[in-house]
Structures are given as C-alpha cells and as structure tokens.
Computed example of a mutant assay.
Amino acid sequence: MAQHRQPLWLLPGFLCDEDLWRDQLTGLADLAECTVADLGHADSIAALARQVLDAAPPRFALAGFSFGGYVAQEIARHAPQRIARLALLDTSFRADTPERLAQRLAANRTVSLPGKFRGMTEQLLPSFVAPPRLHDATLAQRINAMTLRQGREVFIRQNAMRREDGEAALRGLACPVLVLCGRLDALTPPALHEAMAALMPQARLVVVENSGHMSPMEQPAAVTRAMRDWLTA
C-alpha cells in the first residue's frame, strides 16, 4: 500500500530559494508533498508567517532554514496547533541585539549604493560554508546564483526585518522537532542549537559533520536522512 505523503512546507534562508532544498525535494518526495515558500515579498517576519499560514493546509509539517527558521518560529507563536512537526536548521531563536540590527542596517545602506548587486561573493563565502568546501566551484556558483536571483530588493527587505525571541513559542510546542546544524556552522554554531533543543524535551538534535551553515547544500544526504527520520517519527 502506498504511504501517505504529508504536506511539508520548506522555508528557505536569507536570499535563498527552492534550490537550497533541491536534494531534499527529491529525497523526501516519497514521504512528503513539498512546497517551498517564497519569503521575498513582505515587510516583516510576521507578514511572511501569515502568508504561509494562508496558503498551507490546516495541518502540515514545517521546516525552516536560517532566516526561514525565524519565520517558522513566528508560525509556532501564532498557530502551534497547525504544525504537525517542526524542523529548525542552521538557525537561531535569539532576538536581534541592537548591535546586530545596526550591522544589518549598515549593510542595507551599502547594498543600496549605485552599482551592480553581487550576491554571495567570494569574500562572504567563508562565513557560510565549511573550510574544505571553499574551493568547491560548483557549490559556490549555486549559492551565488541563488542570491543573485533573489536580488538587491529582497536583500534589503529581508535584512530589515526584526528577528524576535522564539523561546516561548518553542517551549509551547508538543509536536516532534528536529534541530539540525553543521558542525562547522560559524553563523549559528552547534552550541546555539544545543540551547534551542534543550527548550523542547521532544526535540532531536543532529549535528552534521563536515558542514558549515549551508548544510542542505553542503551535506545533502545527511540532511535528507535526518529529515526522513523526523518525518517518520
């Protein structure tokens, strides 16, 4: 008998699109009916959460990567009963500090200057991928192409959105939860994910070896395997 495919909404990260989830879309197709949300067209994380809730079925599995993890937590804050299971990948539950907000606003001013939008440059890449992958030209090209497709306006819009504290929303969840990150994630390191998983007794923490922040693209097989376990838990 064919297995029931559950609805799964995948929320990409900052300047990311469906290519972030390319391998998971294939690797989870027998278990889930996957939809990748477009997070490029709203003026706040709350508005993005409402867009997903308006489009999604009454109950669904939800996975958020990085910036998408904040959107997932906003959904959990307002409609926890609609989340059948939650996965948070390479993300944070901490609110913006004033310093971080100032950094992002400064970046927006820089990006707003005249000139060509360059997306994920070679200078930025070391923050996002594990050191052994810095010379993987195919991976670098995929990441850069994704950020260029999103473009300057999405950069400015997403970067200006305030990230709220997600602790209370996560503590209130009773559904199965996967918390996953790359062992070498410099942006949202494993210690942060350990703290996040500790908020939810039912959470399973997975640390992916030989991966930086872009785990779904850097180590797709390991991420897909963890997500398959989560979808069948």
Rank of each mutant, 00 (worst) to 15 (best):
T121H: 05
F155L: 04
R104G: 13
T110F: 06
L101A: 15
P131E: 13
R149H: 04
L89I: 14
E167I: 03
R133W: 07
Q158A: 09
R157L: 00
P80R: 01
L88Q: 02
A140F: 07
R77E: 00
A137M: 10
R157F: 05
Q150Y: 00
I156C: 04
A95N: 05
R118G: 06
V129I: 15
L139R: 08
Y70E: 00
R77Y: 01
E164I: 09
R142T: 10
Q123R: 12
S92D: 06
P98F: 13
A102P: 14
R133D: 10
M146Q: 12
R149Q: 10
H135I: 10
K116W: 03
E122F: 02
P114A: 07
R100Q: 15
Q158H: 07
V129C: 11
P126Q: 10
R109T: 06
P114Y: 13
E164S: 14
Y70D: 00
A95P: 09
V111Y: 00
T91Y: 07
K116H: 08
L134I: 11
F93E: 04
L86E: 06
S92E: 09
R100F: 15
R152P: 01
R142Q: 13
M161I: 11
E153M: 06
T97Q: 11
R104S: 13
R118F: 00
R142V: 09
V129G: 06
E99Y: 11
A145L: 06
Y70A: 05
F155E: 00
A72C: 05
L89Y: 03
P131W: 12
P114N: 13
R149C: 07
L134C: 10
R109W: 01
V129Q: 12
R94Y: 13
G166L: 04
A76Y: 02
R157D: 07
L113M: 10
T121R: 04
R77W: 00
F93R: 09
M120I: 04
E167W: 08
R163D: 06
R77T: 07
E74D: 05
A106Y: 05
T110G: 07
E99K: 15
R118Y: 02
H78K: 05
A95H: 11
P132S: 12
P132N: 12
Q103D: 15
I156Q: 06
Q73K: 04
N159C: 12
L134Y: 05
V154S: 03
N108L: 05
E74S: 08
N144M: 05
P131C: 12
P80D: 04
Q81D: 11
P131N: 14
L89S: 06
R149Y: 02
R142I: 10
V71A: 01
N159A: 12
M120L: 12
V111Q: 07
P80C: 01
T91D: 09
V129W: 08
F155R: 01
